[in-house]
Nucleic acid binder design. Structure first.
Lengths: 318, 318
DNA sequence: TCGGAGTGATCGAACGTGCCTATCGACATC
DNA sequence: GATGTCGATAGGCACGTTCGATCACTCCGA
């Protein structure tokens, strides 16, 4: 009959380790907060199920057999690991602690995270933040499949079963080549885009869809079919504009103060009604730690740079 | 209320790991040989006692939370360690396997072990032999205090509560300086030692006591009080004899075939009644693996070199 | 030689709990 | 709307862990 390790209890392992430490049934029992008969019985059962003798008892001394010593070592490992489980769990129900896999869209991540991460680490040192920069289309997939816990993206969320909390509104800025006609004005309005050739990002970026929708509304050209004119990143988009291939719309956070000097472009804000995008923190409705996400959203609203208007309304909506 | 890690069961950890692997309650339950309600309840209890959510259930998918993944990892460690306990135990009740701390007296060890250890390792590869070379006085201490499992020494055993199994009788040989008068005979008898100056080992060696007892019987000189004449090892004893400081008695195994050439000494065997010592394997009466020791004694009898006469009587006596 | 102190083993009772079968409710699919 | 799948729930049984009380043994001092 083979050994049935299933029948072993964690309590028994604790008793075995305690007895190995104390070499005395009474003291070992006391250190385990049980009575001596309990400990005796447990040790005996353990030895019986394993069919080995761990302890050599005499009326005066309790000695550990060599095999017993090896088993005690493993038992210690077992108990250590269980303790670590307890620690993980204890840490786990403090707010915003433990692992959190956060997705951020690439048109926002590089510009928001430098503002966000340092204070977040300071405020919640136990938070193990795993950041992934993924396009909206991928993000909703990963959110739905539990590969991400939450994500920062722009409305509308192209998926069902998601909860979200508003973060801020990020206005778009007009970016054209240096010397562009619109550069003569201090600000532009949406309608000014009529007839402009507006360069777009690659498929899958929400920024592309948002810009495209504005262009369609006001009658701007978008070269939609010519893939040569689709940039795979905003950096590429900048260079294409700087090279005079067209104009574009960039989210405010992505535009630095010395943008015009750095990229040889003209940057102008829009007058109201400002086009822009509404950023939210989103997560699966079924996610067990929704409170954490609400807390995180609140934190992001507080620490978003001034360029964007943090949303005051904290309500969570579908 | 703090988390009571005491309340978790190894079974629960198995279920948690299985569910993390299978992502399906039914299959996980089957892989654990329990019914699905059992597994559901166990997972729920585990999550309740730890007050964390390990699994995100929906009617179609079971997903592991990030914290859950960490806990599952630790749970795996726990189960691995328990499995190792099972392995240790399983190995443990095969004969002559696992750790065995064996003491050997220094006047025998270097000459017996080369004959003994190689076949022993081959016959019992799972035996983890830890050898210690200790004088008889120390050995009985360590045997009594469970620091050794068994020991090879000469009768009589200066301790109570020991069992032993006879191994072999090892005759003593007369060793004198080259050109010694007794060298003219092919063999000597005990009485020839009368008037000889016999050199002895240091205190604590049983060989000293045995030689001393013979010397006292036949009236040989032993310089008992002059510590300068006490050798701390048999090697020293050899050199002292070779230097003409006196004669000595050496156990047969310690004398090599080319002893006379190598050490410039004269070696002669005794005629019957041959003086010698009776070697035994000894262990605490209370030692839980006495069968192993009987087995080991039998093995030693079989593999002892021909110089000594293996005892045929296998009986264990006090 | 006797008794007291200290140790581990044993016994019977009671409570807790882990497991089972049977069933339900939610959801998806046809 | 019927069917099938999946996980949760309910009820009940049985085993095992625990405790208090007690026993058997050894050692040691009077």
């Amino acid at each position: 009959m083979p050994i049935d390790i299933t029948a072993v209890t964690l309590a028994e392992l604790r008793y075995v380790v305690a007895l190995s430490d104390q070499r005395h049934f009474g003291r070992a029992a006391k250190s385990c907060r049980v009575t001596q008969p309990t400990l005796s019985a447990a040790i005996k059962k353990f030895e019986t199920t394993l069919r080995v003798t761990l302890f050599e008892r005499s009326s005066k001394h309790v000695a550990v057999t060599p095999l017993g010593a090896q088993i005690v070592e493993e038992a210690r490992r077992v108990l250590d690991a269980t303790d670590r489980i307890g620690d993980l769990a204890a840490r786990g129900h403090r707010p915003l602690s433990g692992p959190l896999r956060l997705g951020v869209i690439p048109t926002l991540g590089p510009y928001l995270l430098p503002w966000l991460v340092p204070p977040l680490r300071e405020a919640y040192p136990d938070l193990q933040l795993v950041l992934r920069e993924v396009k909206t289309s991928v993000m909703v997939e990963e959110l739905a499949h539990s590969q991400l816990d939450a994500g920062i993206l722009a409305l509308p969320i192209p998926a069902r079963g998601m909860s979200s909390s508003p973060l801020f509104e990020e206005p778009f800025l007009f970016v054209g080549p240096s010397g562009h006609a619109l550069g003569k004005k201090t600000s532009v309005k949406e309608g000014d885009l009529e007839g402009e050739r507006v360069l777009l990002l690659d498929e899958g970026h929400c920024l592309r869809d948002q810009a495209l929708s504005i262009c369609n509304k006001v009658g701007a050209t978008t070269d939609d079919r010519e893939s040569d004119f689709r940039a795979t990143s905003m950096e590429t988009l900048r260079h294409m504009v700087g090279a005079g291939m067209g104009s574009t719309l960039l989210p405010a956070l992505a535009v630095s103060d010395d943008e015009e000097a750095r990229s040889h472009v003209t940057v102008r804000p829009f007058v109201a009604p400002q086009p822009g995008r509404r950023m939210v923190l989103a997560w699966r409705k079924t996610h067990p730690r929704a409170e954490d996400h609400a807390l995180l959203a609140e934190f992001i609203r507080k620490h978003a740079p001034d360029v964007v208007k943090s949303t005051r309304n904290h309500a969570t909506k579908k």
